[in-house]
Computed example of a mutant assay.
Amino acid sequence: MSTIDPTQPQPATDNTVVPAAPAPAPLAPQQAFRPMVQPEFKSIGTMWLLWFFLGGVSAHEFYMGRIGIAFLRLFTAQYLGVGLIIDLFLNTARVRRYNEQVSLLTGVASPTAVMIKA
Rank of each mutant, 00 (worst) to 15 (best):
P22S: 06
P22L: 11
A23N: 10
A23T: 11
P24S: 06
A25P: 01
A25F: 01
P26I: 01
P26Q: 01
P26G: 04
P26C: 02
L27R: 01
P29G: 10
P29R: 08
P29K: 08
Q31H: 09
Q31G: 08
M36W: 12
M36R: 11
M36Q: 14
V37Q: 13
Q38T: 11
Q38V: 09
Q38Y: 11
Q38I: 07
P39N: 14
P39T: 07
P39S: 12
E40D: 09
E40S: 11
E40K: 09
E40M: 12
F41H: 02
K42H: 06
I44G: 02
G45V: 00
T46E: 05
T46I: 11
T46F: 03
M47K: 09
M47F: 05
M47S: 10
M47H: 06
W48C: 01
W48H: 04
L49N: 03
L49A: 07
L49G: 02
F52H: 08
F53D: 07
F53V: 07
L54H: 06
L54R: 08
L54N: 06
G56H: 00
G56S: 04
G56E: 04
V57T: 00
S58Q: 07
S58N: 07
S58G: 08
S58K: 03
A59P: 02
A59N: 09
H60S: 08
E61N: 15
E61H: 15
F62W: 06
Y63I: 00
M64G: 10
I67G: 12
I67Q: 11
I67T: 11
G68N: 07
G68V: 02
I69C: 14
I69L: 15
A70P: 04
A70G: 03
F71W: 13
F71V: 10
L72G: 14
L72I: 13
R73V: 11
R73P: 12
R73S: 14
L74V: 01
F75L: 02
F75I: 02
F75M: 00
T76P: 03
T76H: 05
T76D: 01
T76I: 05
T76K: 05
T76W: 05
T76L: 02
Q78R: 09
Y79K: 12
L80E: 10
L80Y: 07
G81L: 03
V82I: 10
V82T: 08
V82S: 10
G83V: 08
G83F: 04
L84I: 02
I85N: 00
I86Y: 00
I86P: 03
I86S: 00
D87N: 04
D87E: 03
D87C: 03
L88N: 01
F89L: 11
F89V: 12
L90G: 04
L90Y: 08
L90C: 03
N91K: 13
T92P: 15
A93Q: 15
A93N: 14
R94Q: 14
R96Q: 13
R96P: 09
R97Q: 15
R97M: 14
Y98M: 11
N99A: 01
N99L: 00
N99T: 06
N99S: 06
E100F: 12
Q101K: 13
Q101F: 13
Q101M: 13
S103G: 04
L104N: 12
L104V: 13
L105P: 10
T106C: 10
T106G: 13
T106Q: 08
G107Y: 06
